[in-house]
């Protein structure tokens, strides 16, 4: 279909896997109402990357990612501590950790830039990502990590699902909360860490948040949500990468994020289930009908309580919704039908 160059094929392989696994994992995160933790953690990787580089002097992806991983775990630990033992609100602590860690990372970056030679150029790539310069073994690494995470998700599917829907019930079942939340954090950190090299720390959150949000509009079933989110992530990854290759200077990460944003918008507006447009129309119809037939419903619910010569019923009597029977107002079968149709706008 398309004539894809070898490099592009490799990069697409990477973004498809990354998109799919972040979408899948993101579903768990977003349903736990922790969408922005990914954002905080990905920013928090920066000092780890810089320190790893300073300590080893190697620019190998794996070494830097190990640093990123440790740094993100420290951030997560800090977040948990603040949440557990202080009255500081979680969003505020996230904001500070996100930005403060990033600042620490920048201090190290500026130190490296002062002393380092050409090699420092690679480090700032982590901020916005640079998929085009990926090496084949980098991509294989991503694929492997994605598969491992997927495997873990399958193995602990039941526990994770329970934990997300009913934390208290999960705890009451005697399962270890520490283990499952730790596992989830580990996996998210893993994905963020492999993702930042591709799309950068800022747009990594798009990959985690957007697919689940779009999927949520399309289905109410959990496993379908996970599947759809993975699919959206993969397709957006592919489309974004391909589009960004069509023109010079188009950065991959932002284009993927743009595609994802478009998918979310589309799903929100036009989902056959709960699309905003459809719902807006339905609510409008409902409201106007309620206003029009309020008195009719009032009669239906309070038979015999309405005064016979109440002027408000003239319209309904004229339209055969209401008739006078045994000296009282009665809702006719036509009126009943009308009342029923009001609720069933779908």
């Amino acid at each position: 279909m398309f004539d894809l160059g070898y490099t592009l094929q490799i990069v697409i392989l990477g973004t498809v896997f990354l998109g799919a696994i972040s979408g899948i994992l993101g579903t768990f995160v977003v349903l736990r109402n922790q969408a922005l933790i990914g954002d905080a953690l990905s920013h928090a990787t920066l000092p780890g990357i810089m320190i790893a580089y300073m300590l080893t002097g190697v620019r190998s992806l794996q070494v830097l990612l190990l640093g990123a991983f440790i740094s993100a775990l420290v951030a997560m630990f800090a977040l948990n501590t603040i949440k557990k033992y202080t009255t500081i609100k979680f969003d505020a602590s996230m904001a500070l950790i996100l930005s403060g860690f990033f600042g620490v990372g920048q201090v190290f970056l500026s130190q490296i830039q002062k002393t380092g030679g050409a090699s420092q150029a690679g480090l700032s790539r982590f901020i916005l990502g640079q998929a085009a310069t990926m090496l084949r073994r980098d991509v294989y690494f991503i694929v492997i990590v994605a598969l491992v995470v997927l495997l873990l998700l399958i193995v602990f599917w039941k526990e994770l699902k329970l934990y997300i829907f009913d934390e208290n019930f999960y705890k009451a079942s005697g399962l270890s909360e520490r283990f499952i939340s730790g596992l989830l954090t580990m996996m998210v950190t893993f994905i963020i860490v492999i993702g930042i090299r591709l799309v950068g720390v800022i747009l990594m959150s798009a990959l985690i948040i957007a697919p689940p949000v779009a999927a949520r509009q399309l289905s109410n079933r959990f496993y379908l949500n996970v599947g759809i989110a993975g699919f959206i992530g993969a397709v957006s990854g592919m489309t974004g990468t391909y589009l960004s290759a069509t023109r010079a200077n188009l950065p991959t990460g932002p284009v993927i994020a743009l595609v994802l944003g478009g998918v979310v918008l589309l799903a929100l507006l036009a989902s056959p289930r709960n699309g905003i447009v459809k719902r807006y129309v339905q609510i409008r119809i409902f409201r106007s009908r309620i206003k029009r037939y309020r008195k009719l419903i009032h009669l239906y619910e309070n038979p015999g309580e309405v005064n016979l010569d109440s002027k408000e019923y003239t319209y309904f009597i004229n339209h055969d919704y209401v008739k006078v029977e045994d000296g009282a107002l009665r809702v006719t079968s036509k009126g009943m039908k009308r009342i029923r149709s009001i609720k069933a706008v779908d």
């Binding site: 719902r279 339905q282 609510i283 409902f286 409201r287 309620i290 309020r294 419903i297 009032h298 619910e301 609720k343 706008v345």
Partner: peptide, 12 residues
């Protein structure tokens, strides 16, 4: 009458 979306919360 008050409704959240199409769910009546207060009625008549």
């Amino acid at each position: 009458s008050v409704a959240y979306d199409r769910q009546p919360v207060l009625w008549d």
